[in-house]
Design a protein around this nucleic acid. Structure first.
Lengths: 346, 346
DNA sequence: GTGAAAGCGCTAACAG
DNA sequence: CTGTTAGCGCTTTCAC
């Protein structure tokens, strides 16, 4: 379309210096006299010079790109993580390559490898990818896990334990002595965490629990779960995530079972839809955006050999968001007792 | 972490050929004897050779990456477009760089330029970016517009006209003679299209319309709109998009106004949430995924100088998805008359 | 059909 | 502080 793009040589000629000086002026301005830098920048803007990322990548081996590897761009939690990650990357001057690793078909697999091959590091939000795949990834370049822990790899996760503890306290306060946990994918780290945390909190607050599932972490999954729940009903259920919770509420309501009148439902994630359905979904909110951003920031810190080592395992606070889907056990409906430290609705 | 990655020279040595032959074997296998190709491929896999995208990009000037420029990754319509685009790109062997051009701050602007600088073309989903910005983009590299038309640039859009026509027919059939259009961003191409299509369809079916707005295309925007709607109520409203429609329903319902009992609401987009709220949202569904995919495919066709020119302006069919938010004018509530060609619920 | 050689635009020693 | 000189890994004429 346009002519050849200007190179450092063009800038050098115009500024009356050597190409290497132009290079330095851009990559490590400290090493060049300020006057020279000014002259070079002036020449550069006059020519409309833009540094060629590919050409720079060749000798340095660094691309200033990071991959954002996700298993489903359309998942609302993933979308929020992505947003946070992208913002943080942009601010730091890095470009993000998004690779959707959803189906594990050969073409997708290739796409992933290709994307990965030109990237300095990767932030990975793959809730139920096999550990092996992640380790394999991390063998070749720095990797930061989001919403999942794996020994040996750095990660950013929400404080599930605390969120679950508040949830159980909330439910116990409403008189529920037995809750069903509707499990998500069995291979998801977060699922294991929730189970463990529930057992623990149940112990602390004298709440029994049982479990059904696993179910896919989707609205459809939740609707399926509802059927199973009806075999052994409880007055309260905690779902693996908001989507399952929403599906549960839909299916339950469709069968004439009242939420929260007959059963209280709690989700995890606090995605936008949780506030839109009726009743509103009580849920353990994760700071998704912040998790994405922190993941990127820590990855970049990892890539910066000069800077300080970032924290290896970071855990971000969650909050219990109270909405209409939880209420006291048995009818008649009673307004939920809202705990002091809990943050109500949004 | 690992040793130096193998290069074509390593492969060449092992295969007993020149590096240039290895290069050819990968980039234009037709030009090399099949036996040689086999030998080279074997050597390559033995060494674990992977072609270095950056090194290839330097002499060719092509990166095999396309940018997906969006104004909001967390917007559900955008997410679906992205998903489709990514799938199509992956299948075709291309890598996608996602650039979020949301706020127009300097750092974001830089991030965009950086992302753009190493890309062969761009698919743009920026509903209300200024025309100028898009033209500027397109001046430097091939660009494909999604969900928006601009003369001179190729695009993929939904058939708004037809969708609106069906909507108005539906509403007219339910006895609504006057509808309010709740406008989205004034600078959005889609907004203008909807207004025009509404006027036209209104004419055809004898339905009057008026307009309020503009409002931001969000749930909050819809809630604001509800306030304004109440000043001059109508029994039917068509919203710029699903998010506004959802906000409307929320706010209306909160004020004790029944949807669809007192007012019917129609959205545009058919995002997942449209099926989750109650009542379900009647909406003009766009094939978002397919639009994203088609945008990428056409862009790639554009980039392929050899292949045939792709269609310049493509328009994809929409469908009217009937759910609970529309009903006959006046109470008592009557089940909506479902038209033959219309596709019901999903 | 294959090899030799000259870059693509930038960075990184190494001198000065 | 700045210029000179090699490459980074791959593609691409141009000969053979």
């Amino acid at each position: 379309m346009t002519n050849r793009a200007p190179t450092i040589y063009d800038v050098a000629r115009l500024a009356g210096v050597a190409a290497s000086t132009v290079s330095r002026a851009f990559s490590r301005p400290g090493r060049v006299a300020t006057g020279t830098v000014d002259r070079i920048k002036a020449a550069a803007t006059e020519l409309g010079y833009r540094t060629n990322a590919m050409a720079r990548a060749l000798p340095t081996g660094r691309t200033s790109m990071i991959a954002l590897i996700v298993t489903d761009v359309t998942d609302p939690e993933t979308a929020e993580l992505l947003r946070g990650a992208q913002e943080a990357a942009g601010e730091a001057g890095w470009t993000t390559v998004v690779a959707d690793a959803q189906d594990d078909g050969p073409s997708q697999r290739e796409a992933l490898e290709r994307a990965l091959s030109s990237v300095d590091g990767a932030v990975v939000a793959a809730p139920h990818a096999p550990d092996e795949a992640l380790r394999e990834l991390a063998a070749h370049r720095p990797v930061m896990l989001l919403d999942r822990r794996l020994t040996g790899l750095p990660s950013v996760v929400p404080d599930i334990q605390d969120g679950m503890r508040r949830t159980v306290a909330h439910l116990a306060g409403l008189g529920h002595g037995l809750v069903t946990y509707v499990a998500g994918p069995a291979d998801a780290w977060a699922d294991g965490m929730r189970r463990r945390a529930l057992r623990q909190a149940g112990c602390e607050f004298g709440v029994q629990s049982r479990r059904i599932g696993p179910f896919p972490p989707t609205v459809a999954g939740g609707m399926t779960a509802a059927g199973e729940l009806l075999h052994r009903p409880t007055t309260a259920v905690i779902a693996y995530d908001d989507l399952i919770a929403i599906g549960l509420i839909r299916a339950l309501t469709a069968r004439g079972i009242q939420v929260p009148g007959e059963v209280s439902v709690v989700g995890f994630g606090n995605v936008a839809a949780a506030a839109l359905i009726s009743p509103g979904l009580t849920t353990v909110g994760s700071p998704l955006r912040e998790m994405g951003a922190m993941g990127v920031r820590n990855l970049l810190a990892l890539l910066d050999d000069a800077g300080p080592r970032p924290a290896d395992q970071v855990s971000l606070p969650t909050r219990l968001v109270l909405r209409g889907s939880t209420a006291a056990r048995r009818r008649p409906f009673t307004a939920p007792a809202r705990g002091g430290t809990l943050i109500a609705v949004r």
